[in-house]
């Protein structure tokens, strides 16, 4: 009986801790959104973070997109040619990339490549009292350090997702048109006839803006509240990747359901 009580107590404690942390995250987000407008005018700071988050992720995103597109083309063609509709390859690849894989895979790669680095950087700045020093120099770390990194994630994500999808379609074009020999005109015209700019392209970009917000927020939050020790920073970095990935997949489900319901 006492063991049962102990188990319930442990469960209660872990729920309380999580709710506490959620509350902390909500207050942190509120404070962050309040200083965003101050930060927007500091373009040099945002450009610096765009460099570290966006430009540095460019190669991994472009190469991954290319390979994903190529694999989709090989797999897709294998199925399509059974029904004699190999020219629809462009449609299949473009729709999967633009609607789903582009935003989602980009966000997952971004969480691993850029966000984890942001968490570690902010965590280290906290551990070495750089944030405290800034605060003592009457400079708010939230608007000087946190907000530019958050904004950079929001801005980079749709650009990177567009680059990912474009690279993927190009990869599919290499496999489908250049290697397999699908008609070039049919590849593009079928794609154009089926991909809708508003429903597919814009909704895909909207998804990646939402993912950018979520991943950016998680990475700065985990960094800002990381325990100021080596283990604290490394576990915060891990948490950023895990929580970001799960949130991206969950948000993708929610957004997809919302977008398709809006359609019918």
């Amino acid at each position: 009986m006492t063991r049962l009580f102990a188990a319930i107590e442990t469960l209660g404690q872990s729920v309380t801790r999580r709710v506490d942390r959620l509350g902390l995250a909500a207050r942190f987000s509120g404070a962050l959104f309040l200083v965003l407008w101050i930060c927007i005018r500091r373009t040099t700071l945002i450009i610096r973070e765009l460099y570290f988050s966006g430009v540095r992720s460019l190669s991994i995103i472009a190469v991954s997109g290319l390979f994903v597109g190529m694999v989709l083309a090989v797999q897709g063609y294998e199925v399509l040619q059974r029904y004699g509709s190999g020219e629809s390859l462009g449609v299949i690849v473009a729709l999967s990339l633009v609607r789903e894989l582009g935003p989602v895979v980009t966000a997952l790669l971004f969480a691993g490549r850029a966000s984890s680095a942001v968490t570690a950087e902010i965590g280290l700045m906290r551990a070495t009292e750089q944030l405290a020093a800034m605060d003592m120099m009457a400079v708010d770390p939230l608007s000087r350090v946190i907000a530019p990194r958050f904004l950079a994630a929001i801005l980079s994500m749709p650009l990177l997702a567009a680059i990912f999808s474009t690279a993927g379609i190009f990869g599919a074009w290499i496999i489908g048109v250049q290697l397999i020999g699908i008609d070039d005109g049919a590849f593009w015209s079928q794609m154009q006839a089926s991909v809708d700019v508003r429903i597919d392209v814009l909704d895909g970009l909207l998804k990646s803006v939402v993912f950018g917000t979520a991943v950016g927020l998680i990475s700065v939050f985990e960094g800002y509240f990381a325990a100021p020790t080596a283990e604290g920073i490394s576990s915060a970095t891990t948490r950023t990747v895990v929580i970001s990935s799960l949130s991206v997949l969950l948000l993708d489900l929610v957004l997809t359901v919302m977008m398709f319901r809006g359609l019918s």
């Binding site: 009292e129 405290a132 020093a133 003592m136 009457a138």
Partner: peptide, 19 residues
């Protein structure tokens, strides 16, 4: 508070330079 802190300097334990 930020106004006051402009008149206060602080040296941190390990310097806390921006890396």
């Amino acid at each position: 508070l930020y106004g006051l802190r402009r008149r206060i300097g602080m040296l941190f334990q390990f310097g806390a330079l921006f890396t």
